[in-house]
């Protein structure tokens, strides 16, 4: 009904004081739950939920977004969404960092080398020769040199 006057809604005093009371209440709750109640891993999400609720109260009533032009709500949501994007996409990396490291041993050349060694062992076993551990040393050294060359 008051479409042309979005910005001029006067937030009633009762709501302002009520929201303030709610914010104080939630602050006390968040301190108590964090300091007195041990929920293990759930403490962090709980605190964030409470903080989110408080922020929502401030945005909705103190900042009067409830009565404001819809486009401002859109803008605010957009900002919020991109914070989530920034956070989650960065966490895709940092939470799984090093997920390649278990594959490190499995370079193609390494696999070939291991297969080669296995074949040699097989042959020696078949021929009844003793398994000479020292024989493998040069192979390892050569492998190390290969990596050194890569580094250049």
């Amino acid at each position: 009904m008051a479409d042309g006057h979005h910005g001029h809604h006067i937030v009633p005093l009762k709501i302002l004081w009520g929201v303030f009371g709610g914010l104080i209440f939630l602050t006390i709750i968040t301190v108590i739950t964090a300091k007195q109640v041990d929920l293990g891993p759930l403490n962090l999400p709980l605190a964030l939920v409470i903080a989110g609720t408080k922020a929502t109260l401030v945005v909705t009533f103190f900042m009067a977004l409830k009565w404001d032009n819809r486009v401002n709500l859109l803008i605010f949501s957009l900002g919020f969404i991109f914070v989530i994007v920034f956070l989650s996409f960065t966490l895709f990396d940092t939470s799984f960092r090093g997920d390649m490291s278990n594959a490190e041993e499995n370079y193609i050349s390494d696999q070939e080398r291991i297969e080669q060694q296995l074949l040699e062992r097989q042959e020696r076993l078949e021929q009844g020769l003793p398994l000479d551990v020292e024989e493998e040393e040069p192979a390892d050294a050569g492998h190390g040199d290969d990596h050194g060359d890569d580094g250049h």
């Binding site: 001029h8 803008i75 605010f76 914070v83 920034f86 956070l87």
Partner: peptide, 27 residues
């Protein structure tokens, strides 16, 4: 009204830049 709405919209846009500025530190 146009002036007020424009100013307010500009401010909201500025506020999300503030939020994203702090988001870096939160990340």
């Amino acid at each position: 009204d146009q002036q007020f709405d424009a100013a307010k919209m500009g401010m909201w846009l500025f506020l999300i830049t503030e939020i994203l500025l702090f988001s870096g530190m939160f990340v």
